[in-house]
Computed example of a mutant assay.
Amino acid sequence: MEEERKRVEKHLVHTNYPLEVSDTEDAEKDISAGEENAAKDMNEGEDTDGGNINLLPKKANRGKINFIDDRMLACMDKWNLSTRDAMHLVSATVAAFINTMQSVNGTPSIKMEDLILNRTTLHSMRRDFRRRQAQEIINGFNIPDVFVLHWDGKLLAEIRGTEKKDRLSLVVTGENMGKLLGIPKIESSTGDAIAAEIHNFLCK
């Protein structure tokens, strides 16, 4: 009994059941009620294997319905929205839509909990979208038979960190067209390195 009481008191410390103490008698009643609630939670948290108590909160279920398409991702990039701001805008729009549907049709068929609404997933979606868009542009572009190739080297800072690298911008122009081919990194800004990079890039 003494060990069981210690377990209950320890559990009360972790669960923080509110106790409104007005006098000695009420305090004893509240403590008894708190002990009963704690014992009940402890019994519910016991597993069938070793009787261990699981005090960890239940993991929230994430939504599984993905409703964000390429048009929405393109708008986010066009407006130059950060992933955090884009997530705020999307969440507010979805909440307003669900509230409107609820006021018109009653209980909506889709809830906020059913949708994928988190910044990590949105960041991955935007990264994949940009990669697919860049690949489609490269695959859909054919260099004309007659063209002019322009290039220029510049020392630019890396996206991550403060280190700077030599980069080479390559632009192709022709009749009624102009296209940025890429801005690859180069080992050095010497003529041989630039010529080798241009040759390798055009052969891709």
Rank of each mutant, 00 (worst) to 15 (best):
E2I: 06
E3K: 14
E3V: 14
R7K: 15
H11A: 15
H11M: 14
L12A: 12
N16K: 10
E20F: 07
T24I: 08
A27S: 08
K29M: 07
K29R: 13
D30K: 11
I31R: 06
S32E: 15
E35Y: 14
E36V: 09
K40P: 00
E44Q: 14
G50D: 08
G51Y: 02
I53N: 01
I53P: 04
N54R: 06
K58N: 09
K58L: 09
A60E: 12
R62A: 13
F67S: 05
D70M: 05
M72S: 02
C75K: 15
C75D: 05
R84E: 03
A86V: 04
H88V: 14
S91Y: 13
S91R: 13
A95W: 14
A95N: 14
A96H: 12
F97A: 15
F97L: 12
N99C: 04
M101H: 01
M101S: 02
V104T: 04
S109E: 04
M112V: 13
L115G: 06
L117E: 08
L117T: 13
N118F: 07
T121G: 09
L122K: 05
H123M: 12
S124K: 15
M125R: 14
M125W: 10
M125S: 08
D128L: 11
R130V: 08
Q133H: 07
N139G: 02
G140P: 03
F141T: 08
P144N: 01
D145C: 02
V148K: 05
V148A: 11
W151T: 03
D152S: 02
I159C: 11
R160L: 00
K164Y: 12
K164Q: 15
R167D: 00
L168T: 04
S169T: 05
L170G: 01
T173K: 12
T173R: 09
E175C: 06
M177I: 13
M177Y: 07
K179I: 08
K179H: 12
L180G: 01
L180W: 01
E187W: 00
S189F: 03
D192G: 04
D192F: 05
A193S: 12
I194T: 03
I198Q: 00
K204S: 12
